[in-house]
């Protein structure tokens, strides 16, 4: 099992539904977020100005600097490659935040570090992640890369994609479709 998410940058309209769905599903306090939207603009007016949105979150990397730097073992990897933080074991030192190249983690006001869990509590019930479920343009595709028939495997085979900061060597599992 290898969970991964593909994100179609050409379809995303930047509505931020995925952000609010995650906040409400996972009790993320107002002012914080586990997923966020990046608006990227290229070009200079009046030449072709291009823009696209990306919905970003923890990339559930295969090689995890965040887990390696965690002094207490609170950051760990579970079945399917999901990177999690055990809240009671986290001392809030934020070493993982420094180590993560994607700014995917934040310090919860209650003192521990929090981040995207790929909604593992929903996956257990056979549901999709909250962000995937609400996206009105269906631009988030989630599934198991070890299963060649999963939607995410199929779309990554069909389409061109890129990952963020490949030079960091983290082998991130959030793929952006071109």
């Amino acid at each position: 099992m290898r969970y991964a998410m593909a994100m179609d940058t050409r379809k995303c309209v930047g509505c931020s539904d995925c952000v609010v769905a995650c906040q409400t599903e996972n009790n993320v306090p107002l002012g914080y977020c586990r997923d966020w939207i990046v608006e990227a603009v290229k070009g200079t007016y009046p030449d072709t100005v291009q823009m696209h949105f990306k919905s970003e979150r923890c990339m559930h990397c295969e090689n995890t600097p965040c887990v390696r730097t965690c002094p207490t073992g609170a950051s760990h990897v579970i079945e399917g490659g999901i990177v999690k933080v055990t809240h009671d074991e986290c001392i809030g030192c934020a070493a993982c935040i420094e180590a993560c190249p994607y700014e995917a983690r934040y310090v919860h006001p209650d003192g521990y570090v929090d981040k995207c869990t790929f909604c593992d509590h929903r996956l257990e019930q056979g549901l999709n992640t909250a962000c995937v479920d609400v996206c009105p343009t269906s631009c988030l595709i989630f599934g198991d890369l070890d299963d060649p028939k999963s939607d995410v495997s199929k779309i990554l085979k069909e389409k061109d994609w890129y990952v963020l900061a490949p030079e960091a060597g983290t082998n991130p599992q959030l793929y952006f479709l071109k």
Binding site: G14, V19, Y32, W36, V38, E39, V41
Partner: peptide, 8 residues
Amino acid sequence: KGHKQESH
């Protein structure tokens, strides 16, 4: 929040 703008 949750909507970073233009990270050139």
